[in-house]
Design a protein around this nucleic acid. Sequence first.
DNA 1: GTAAAAGTTAGAGTTAACTGTAAGTCAACT
DNA 2: AGTTGACTTACAGTTAACTCTAACTTTTAC
Lengths: 118, 118
Amino acid sequence: MNIKAFSVLTGLSPYTLRYYERIGLLKNIQRNTSGHRTYTNKDTDWVKFILRLKETAMPLENILEYASLREQGDVTQSDRQYLLKEHRKNLKSYIQSQLEHLTALERKIEFYESQKVS
Amino acid sequence: MNIKAFSVLTGLSPYTLRYYERIGLLKNIQRNTSGHRTYTNKDTDWVKFILRLKETAMPLENILEYASLREQGDVTQSDRQYLLKEHRKNLKSYIQSQLEHLTALERKIEFYESQKVS
DNA sequence: GTAAAAGTTAGAGTTAACTGTAAGTCAACT
DNA sequence: AGTTGACTTACAGTTAACTCTAACTTTTAC
């Protein structure tokens, strides 16, 4: 699949896809005979995982760290698991704080409600 | 209270506090006779609310919109409530998606677990 | 009363994460 | 076979949100 199709599939612009490759987040992207990138289903899985980490507010720099472990093969599995466990911990407390913010927001909305037709 | 004390209280650097004032997020900050800023408890409440919105991923530009309504006084209360209701809606679905990401993360951690001592 | 610390402004610099441009090559369609 | 559109690279520009610098004034501590 060419870069346009992969862009549509992943929701990342061709610019961003080339950028990710440049910073080392995507590696070993195959090329066809004329030098154009060709993406595979394996690439799709990996990008979807990157996006998951990104959407949970992990900076590209940290994702890059995970990517580099992944590149080193199976011997790094427990390191990767450790990274994900740390991330899980952070994500849990992040969600907790978001829930608290939601409660505070509800209270503020209620306050505005109580001010009506005074 | 001077800018340093207010900085410690809010967790925002003096640079950031001046920046927020410059972009119009903080208005009518009082000055003492020598031109130094003096912050009040009212300012503290407002900054804490700004931080709440910021921590729920609201861009400063949107917070600015809320700030501008707030500045126009009581007649804008229902507009402000509307903004907050919209934000609540977004925040709820945002939390929902974070929970889904957490589940996926758990699954990945489990996968790494299953790969151990093979 | 003087030195160090903290305040002021205007404006420049930084960082992360893209996003766009220019100059050129390749592919698809009539 | 020619034109239109998609691809390539290297590198420059953008955006949000700060963060720092320089030059200067004021406050605080000894």
